[in-house]
């Protein structure tokens, strides 16, 4: 494998070794996998797996401590009437809500549910490195076990790959040993699938533990072809280095059907060993209610309604 020493030329020559993405092929492969029909016991398994993979997210300007506490309760016991429902993968909030979420999760019996903080001037990433450092350190100090950073898309698109790489590497050095680093590529702004593949490798080479599609603030977000390309990237990275990197699609995954399509993509692309919350997460908020309604349908034999799940 080509070695990266952080210089612009080493990054460029490393990315040159990547095979280009066949866009038409990726789209048709993703569309074909989306036609798989998952039923009965497999569906039931997939629903529980998807619930345990959710990064239950609230990233609104209107967030309050009350709302964060409410989603923490929901994270621990998604369906209060059914103790067999697994807890979600993590809570994902803005920096100032990290402490509230951590304290409340601990109090509500969710000690093993990590808090993920969006960081580095999320969602735009337009801030100085010093601001990004403080943003990240503050979140970790307040109990964030996962840092969701955004890359500098402006630098990436104008070809300043060195800046993107060094920034990720710097944030990684702050997280080292204390928090998992998820790198948000914001694929909706990267224009082509080739760029998605390049950015994925750049992030992994710089030390990302997870690569994440989007902030959720830009459309399109986690489209199937994009997730497919990112899963192929982590699969190839594993073949090159023996290190397993996680993938987190976020944004636009609202229904059980969407979530199950994601799981099929994972199974068929990266492989079944990626079907674990350690290596695959889904960033979502409304999705959880739909999964719970589908779970009730499987359990009770009739269709549930939104009146039977919590409003959030």
């Amino acid at each position: 494998m080509q070695v990266i020493d952080g210089s612009a030329s080493s990054i460029k020559s490393f990315l040159k070794t990547l095979s280009p993405v066949d866009q038409v092929g990726a789209e048709s492969r993703a569309a074909m996998l989306a036609t798989r029909s998952i039923k009965t016991s497999s569906k039931s398994w997939a629903i529980d797996m998807a619930i345990s993979m959710i990064d239950l997210t609230t990233l609104e300007g209107a967030d309050t401590a009350g709302k964060v506490k409410a989603i923490c309760n929901k994270a621990v016991r998604p369906d209060p009437s059914d103790p067999t429902v697994p807890h979600v993968g993590a809570i994902c909030v803005y920096n100032d809500m990290v402490k509230i979420a951590r304290t409340h999760l601990d109090a509500a019996g969710g000690k093993d549910i990590p808090v993920a903080a969006v960081s580095t001037a999320f969602p735009s990433g337009r801030a100085s490195l010093e601001v990004k450092r403080v943003d990240t350190e503050d979140a970790i100090a307040n109990g964030a076990a996962e840092i969701d950073m955004v890359i500098d898309r402006g630098a990436f698109l104008s070809g300043d790959l060195e800046k993107v790489y060094s920034e990720i590497k710097y944030i990684k050095s702050l997280c080292e040993g204390r928090a998992h680093l998820k790198v948000i590529l914001e694929t909706g702004e990267l224009v082509t699938l080739d760029n998605v593949r390049k950015a994925s490798f750049l992030a992994m080479a710089a030390g990302a533990d997870f690569i994440k599609t989007s902030t959720g603030k830009v459309t399109p977000a986690a489209t199937a072809p994009v997730v497919l390309v990112m899963l192929e990237a982590v699969r190839d990275w594993y073949a090159m280095t023996g290190v397993k990197i996680g993938v987190k699609p976020a944004g636009g995954i609202r229904t059980t059907k969407d979530a199950i399509k994601q799981l099929v993509l994972v199974n068929e692309t990266a492989g079944p060993e990626w079907l674990t919350p350690e290596l695959f997460r889904i960033g979502a908020s409304a999705l959880l209610n739909d999964l719970l309604m589908q779970r009730m349908k499987l359990r009770d034999g009739h269709y549930a309604g939104p009146n039977y799940v919590t409003l959030d």
Binding site: G301, H302, Y303, A304, G305, P306, N307, Y308
Partner: peptide, 9 residues
């Protein structure tokens, strides 16, 4: 029967 049992009707 599905209409009868649907909880959102």
């Amino acid at each position: 029967p599905w209409i009868g049992s649907h909880m959102d009707i």
